[in-house]
Nucleic acid binder design. Structure first.
Length: 459
DNA sequence: GTGTGCCCTG
DNA sequence: CAGGGCACAC
């Protein structure tokens, strides 16, 4: 009966050898363990020397008849000794660095789960009291032990970060089972968790909050949530760019001023710089909603198609309000950053638009045009082609007539202003802007559809 | 103080 | 097209 357990344990340890904590730092750990064994034997005066002597006498390769029996006995002895040793070692280690982590992550159920994940095989299953003990003191160890171990590349930051985001979000209502369900074993019994954490599922060896520490920067999380999608769609490319820019902002402005040390829980970091962060680019809640586990079909960023759509909308509105944008980009999950980006797009559109207008107006003046009556915009004029090339490059959208009218009015405004010599005033264009902003027209309802591009361009 | 838009630059 | 600086309006 015992031997079956031992055999199963042996096989198990082979099959999961990559994941065992005991292999994290074999040399140091074993050496220390042996030393402690001797210490304990000396202190307790137990007859364990016998087992050790046998080990030395016969060695692991013994083929003598009683070798098998000796091996079993030895294993049992080692189990017992190792259990004591581990307890002792853990106590020794726990005395050192536990304070910070234990404070930040009080009891939880994580220690047990973690124990099961990394624990020393099944021999601990029969030692509940040890498990409890381990659970109490093992918390700080992940930082020590895992900090030294090379995790499989598949467990790199890119996957862990999205989950970090969810954890950091205080009001995250556990919206549905996460895609991978990686953290589910944490809620299972140690035994089932152990069984579940085979090599293929051994992806988040840390309790998730612990994972947060190295990357707990307010933007570290969002970036993870973006990259966590783990696919190379155009959206993700956009997101990457956006995220990069965000991170640049944040790191250059705030993170450098408030380096997030592991001693600071996220809430503290938030408290320190939340106002700054908020004023900079959205709030953290917004960002956390971008988690790939939100289960929403909403776009988590602006795609090239959104840009194309925005350009087509420019034919109708030059000065869209942020509310209008939210209405017409209903498939986008809005936060401050998205809103700002969209507004910036239209700002850029206007910039190009007005530059073209001024250029064309001056050109007309240079060409000897004296009356605005001579200025008209048709679909084959140079100005129109330039605008169409910019906002409707594929020329697969029929530019509304109203846009031609507005463009013509704009052109004549510029023409008149220049003729009148108003361009000596540095802010002479503002009067024109004031006129043009009143000429926005209704954007067709079809633009509210997320699939409007297909619908529009197929007409 | 915050939001917005313009301007300039890369 | 994005970033940053700036001015202006609430």
């Amino acid at each position: 009966m015992r031997s079956e357990l031992l055999d199963a344990r042996a096989q198990d340890s082979v099959g999961r050898s990559d994941n065992e904590m005991c292999e994290l730092d074999p040399g140091q750990f074993i050496d220390r363990a042996r030393a402690l064994i001797r210490e304990q034997e000396m202190a307790e005066n137990k007859p364990k020397r016998e087992g050790n002597n046998k080990e030395r006498d016969h060695g692991p390769n013994s083929l003598q008849p009683e070798g098998k029996h000796l091996a079993e006995t030895l294993k049992q002895e080692l189990n017992s000794a190792m259990s004591q040793v581990v307890d002792t070692v853990v106590k020794v280690f726990a005395a050192k660095p536990s304070r910070q982590v234990a404070q930040v992550f009080p009891p939880l159920q994580i220690p047990q789960a973690r124990f099961a994940v990394n624990g020393e095989n099944h021999n601990f299953h029969t030692a509940n009291q040890r498990l409890q003990c381990f659970g109490d003191v093992i918390i700080p160890n992940p930082l020590d032990t895992f900090g030294n171990v090379q995790m499989p590349s598949s467990t790199d930051q890119t996957e862990a970060l999205p989950l970090v985001v969810r954890k950091n979000s205080s009001d995250q209502p556990a919206s549905g089972p996460p895609a991978g369900g990686h953290h589910q074993p944490l809620h299972q019994s140690p035994l089932s968790a152990t069984a579940g954490f085979t090599t293929s599922t051994f992806r988040h060896p840390f309790p998730l909050p612990l994972m947060a520490y190295p990357f707990q920067s307010p933007l570290g999380a969002p970036s993870g949530s973006f990259s966590g999608k783990d696919r190379a769609s155009p959206e993700s490319l956009d997101l990457t760019r956006e995220t990069t820019s965000l991170r640049t902002k944040m790191s250059s402005h705030h993170l450098s001023h408030h380096p997030c040390s592991p001693a600071h829980p996220p809430s503290t970091a938030e408290g320190l710089s939340l106002s700054l962060i908020k004023s900079e680019c959205g709030d953290l809640q917004d960002m956390s909603e971008i988690s790939p586990y939100s289960g929403s079909a909403m776009q988590e960023g602006l795609s090239p198609n959104h840009l194309k759509k925005a350009k087509l909308m420019f034919f109708y509105t030059r000065y869209p309000s942020s509310n209008m944008l939210k209405t017409y980009f209903s498939d986008v999950k809005f936060n401050r950053c998205i809103t700002s980006q969209l507004i910036k797009w239209f700002s850029n559109f206007r910039e190009f638009y007005y530059i073209q207008m001024e250029k064309y107006a001056r050109q007309a003046i240079n060409d000897g045009v004296t009356s605005t009556e001579e200025l008209s915009i048709t679909r084959d004029c140079e100005l129109y082609r330039a605008l169409n090339m910019h906002y409707n490059k594929a020329n697969d959208f029929e530019v509304p007539e109203r846009f031609l009218e507005v463009a013509q009015i704009t052109l004549r405004e510029f023409f008149n202003a220049i003729i009148a010599g108003k361009d000596v005033d540095p802010s002479w264009k503002k009067a024109i802007y004031k006129v043009i902003c009143k000429l926005d027209s209704e954007v067709p309802e079809i633009f509210k559809s997320p699939n409007c591009l297909q619908e529009l361009l197929h007409e």
